[in-house]
């Protein structure tokens, strides 16, 4: 997954996970099974706009939140 095979530890919705070093948000979503899903992603409490997914890289210790839309009212 990463160029050098090195893994970094991150939290995804509070759960520890390991992903490839420097993986993009796009790549992260695919590796976690969210590829193509209508979710929003926050890295360290900051939502990443969809157009910035490819250039946003995941770093060691990042706290990721993946949020599905909610329609109820």
């Amino acid at each position: 997954m990463s160029q050098d095979g090195c893994l970094v530890k991150i939290l995804v919705n509070g759960e520890p996970q390991e992903v490839g070093l420097n993986v993009s948000v796009d790549g992260l979503l695919v590796s976690l099974g969210y590829g193509g899903k209508a979710v929003a992603v926050a890295v360290n409490r900051d939502f990443v706009p969809r157009s910035s997914y490819p250039q946003t890289r995941i770093q060691e210790g990042d706290e990721i939140e993946i949020l599905a839309p909610m329609q109820g009212g």
């Binding site: 926050a42 900051d46 939502f47 706009p49 969809r50 157009s51 910035s52 939140e65 949020l67």
Partner: peptide, 11 residues
């Protein structure tokens, strides 16, 4: 808890 929302220039 709150998350920071950003305007997407490509919205």
């Amino acid at each position: 808890h709150e998350l920071k929302l950003r305007k997407d220039p490509h919205c």
